[in-house]
Write a protein that binds this DNA or RNA. Structure first.
Lengths: 202, 202
DNA sequence: GGGCTACCATGACGGACGTCATGAAGGAGG
DNA sequence: CCTCCTTCATGACGTCCGTCATGGTAGCCC
C-alpha cells in the first residue's frame, strides 16, 4: 500500500501505457497519476522515458508471471484447459468490472516501440519469456510432456493476447470465452496418457 | 500503381501506423510518405486525423479479408489447418523479407485508441468483423459445421494476432510456426465427418 | 470570359512533449 | 555547526504536434 514514490511511478506508467499506449503517455501524466514529485523523474530515471517504460514493462511481466503461479495453485482438479480458462477469466473479470479501457501493456509497448527502440523491444521480449516460463512449468506439472509444454505455452499466450485485442475492439468478452472453449480439448488432450491415468487414480 | 493522392495518404497512414503506432504517426509524416501535398489533408479529410486513421483501418481490414480469399483459392487440397498455415505464412514471409518493424495496424490502433476514441475503436471492430467473415466462410466451405466456423475463425485471428506480437517482441518467427503446428490438428479435426469422407472421394 | 468548384500551398497558432539547468529542503556523519 | 548527498521543486528550452486561416492555381460550366 505505502509504496515508495519510485515504485508508484513505475506502476502508474504501466497502468497508463495499458490504457493510452506508450506514445500518448506523458511523463507529466505519470507523475500526476503517481502523486509523485516531478523532480524525482530525472533523479530515479536518469535514462529518461525509455528507462521508466522498460521498468514498467518488466514489472508487468513479473506481475503476469506471479498471477499465473497464484491462479494455478487455486484451481481444484487442475488441467491445462482449466489453467487457460483461469488466465482468461482474470481478463474477463477485469473487463466486466473495470471496462475495456485497459489492455495488455506488453502488447501496447510492442505496437508502439518495436520498430523504434531496441531496448524496449528486448524488455518486452524478456517479459514475455518470464510470463511464458511459469505457464510451461505448470503445464509440465499437470502432465504435459516437456517437449510440448513450451509450444502450448506460446499458443496460450498468443491466443490470450489476441483475444484481449479482439475483446477491446468489440467491447465484448466473447472472444475470450470463445478461445477458452475451443482450446480446452486441445490443451487437456496434451496431457500424457500415463500421467492422466495416474492422476485419476490419485 | 498510379493511385490518387487521397488513396496514397490512406495507404501510407496504414503503413506508418503498422510501424510506429497511431500516436507516433504524424500527419506530416503521412503526407511525406505518400508524396502528397500537405494542403490536401484538410481537403480530403476534414474530419482530421481520426478520419484518416479510420479509413486506414478500414482499408487494412478489407486488405486482410481480400488476402484470405485469395490465399484460400491458391491452396491445393485445402483444409482448415492449411488455411491457417497460409495466413500465418504471409506474415512469416513479411517478417523474414522485410524485418519485424511492421505489425498489424488493427492491433496498434486498438492499443493506442481503444480507450480514447469510440469512432476508431468501432472502425477496428468492423475491420476485424470483415476479416473474420471470409475466414469463417472458407471454413464452412471446407466442411466445418456452421455452428463452429465463427468460433474457429475467432480462435485463428486471436492466435495469429498474438503470435505476431510475440514474433515482433522476439524478432523471431518461431511463435508463428508454433501456433500453426499446435492448432493444425484442432482445426483439421473440426471438419464434419460426412463432408470429410465425401471430399476424399471427390 | 466570368464564375464556381476542386485541389493544392504556406505559414502561423496554441499546446504538449521530453529534457535539462538550477536550486532548495533535510537528514546523516564528521 | 558545517558539509554532503539524497530527494524534491520549478522554470525554461527547443521541438513537434494537429488544426486552421488564407490564398493561389486549374479546369469545367454557363
Amino acid at each position: 500500500m505505502t509504496r515508495t514514490p519510485r515504485e508508484r511511478m513505475v506502476l502508474s506508467a504501466a497502468q497508463l501505457v495499458r490504457i493510452h499506449g506508450v506514445g500518448a503517455t506523458g511523463l507529466r501524466d505519470v507523475v500526476a497519476h503517481a502523486e509523485a514529485p516531478r523532480g524525482s523523474l530525472q533523479h530515479y530515471f536518469p535514462g529518461g522515458k525509455d528507462q521508466l517504460i522498460a521498468e514498467a514493462v518488466a514489472w508487468a511481466g513479473d506481475y503476469a508471471a506471479r498471477r499465473v503461479a497464484r491462479v494455478a495453485a487455486e484451481i481444484e482438479d487442475p488441467t491445462p484447459g482449466k489453467l487457460f480458462a483461469a488466465m482468461a477469466g482474470q481478463w474477463r473479470a477485469e473487463f466486466t468490472t473495470s471496462g475495456f479501457d485497459g489492455g495488455c501493456p506488453l502488447v501496447a509497448t510492442v505496437a508502439d516501440t518495436a520498430a523504434t527502440s531496441d531496448s524496449l523491444r528486448e524488455a518486452v521480449g524478456k517479459a514475455f519469456e518470464g510470463w511464458q516460463r511459469p505457464v510451461a512449468a505448470t503445464l509440465e506439472q499437470l502432465g504435459v510432456p516437456p517437449a510440448r509444454s513450451a509450444s502450448l505455452a506460446v499458443l496460450m499466450l498468443s491466443a490470450l493476447e489476441g483475444a484481449i485485442v479482439l475483446a477491446r475492439a468489440h467491447r465484448d468478452v466473447a472472444p475470450l470465452d470463445t478461445v477458452v472453449e475451443e482450446l480446452r480439448p486441445l490443451l487437456d488432450g496434451a496431457v500424457g496418457k500415463r500421467r492422466r491415468r495416474a492422476s485419476t487414480v490419485d
